[in-house]
């Protein structure tokens, strides 16, 4: 949604917008995670991060496909992933931030996987059969992502002095991007009214409680919520990182739009 877009009104328009938002989150995070491929600290982690990246892109692909079907204008998952610009992408700003060190990647993964877990627990009962089906299928994988990242938060937090410092810095850095995860804009409200969207504001409490619990066990300090919180991802307002990521991701597909690649 750029500043020029209108808020969707009809059920299908709202559902389309809702699906694309979720898909954008997952594609962008998957793209970031895939940067670890071949560069992880240990082969086991290379495997695990590639696996999560693969799940993220798989989830995005399922959501885009369904969104395109709802839209009914002959677009497909690749049209949505490859032929939109950064002002049209709706992902949270947290997810487009550079991968950083493993501590940053893990801190983000933990916060987002926990959020996704709570969100998908709601979405699996969405009043739309196909959407609910996707959500409950993806939920199984999200559980694994949450477990994996939680274990690493504990290891890094309660590991060495250096790892503790690094993961604490990562949580401190990333915290300003957690605010927008729980914002309810018009689309979210309408989606909730239509019976296929979750009340995000309500997720905040269980999310925070679990974060507090895990960070406490990891001997880490939970950053202060009373600080500047970034916002705007859902309206297509992004940090400068997204444009560069899309330039790389989309260049080949856009350079030869008539070529067949699938």
């Amino acid at each position: 949604m750029s500043t020029l877009d209108k808020t969707p009104v009809k059920r299908d328009e709202i559902l389309f917008e809702y699906l694309v938002r979720l898909a954008d989150d997952r594609l962008i995070l998957g793209q970031r995670l895939s940067e670890w491929s071949g560069h992880g600290p240990e082969l086991e982690e290379d495997l695990a991060l590639a696996n999560i990246a693969l799940d993220m892109i798989g989830h995005a692909s399922g959501l885009y496909t369904y969104a395109a079907e709802i839209e009914g204008e002959g677009r497909d998952e690749d049209d949505l992933a490859y032929f939109r610009d950064d002002i049209d992408f709706k992902n949270f700003q947290m997810l487009e931030q550079p991968k950083g060190d493993l501590a940053y990647t893990i801190a983000r993964q933990f916060l987002f996987s926990l959020y996704s877990y709570l969100l998908y627990m709601e979405l699996k009962d969405a009043d739309d059969e196909q959407f609910a089906g996707l959500a409950s299928k993806h939920l199984k994988e999200i559980r694994y992502h949450l477990r994996h990242s939680r274990e690493w938060v504990l290891r890094l937090g309660d590991g060495t002095e250096e790892s503790h410092r690094r993961i604490q810095d990562a949580f401190d850095d990333i915290w300003m991007y957690t605010g927008e995860l729980f914002e309810m804009d018009e689309v979210d409200k309408k989606a909730a009214e239509e019976g296929f969207g979750a009340d995000l504001a309500k997720l905040r409490k269980p999310w925070k409680e679990h974060v507090d619990e895990v960070l406490d066990e990891a001997t880490l300090t939970v950053p202060d919520d009373n600080q500047y919180m970034a916002s705007g991802g859902r309206t297509g307002f992004h940090t400068e990182h997204l444009g560069h990521m899309l330039a790389q991701m989309q260049f080949l597909r856009r350079s030869y739009p008539d070529a067949e690649w699938t």
Binding site: Q31, S37, L47, L54, A60, S61, D78, L252, A259
Partner: peptide, 21 residues
């Protein structure tokens, strides 16, 4: 991986590189 020309190709390549690990 980051420049694969479709989501399907991206998944195929990621899975392949993962197999190699």
């Amino acid at each position: 991986i980051e420049r694969a020309p479709s989501l399907k190709r991206k998944k195929v390549l990621l899975a392949k590189v993962q197999d190699e690990a």
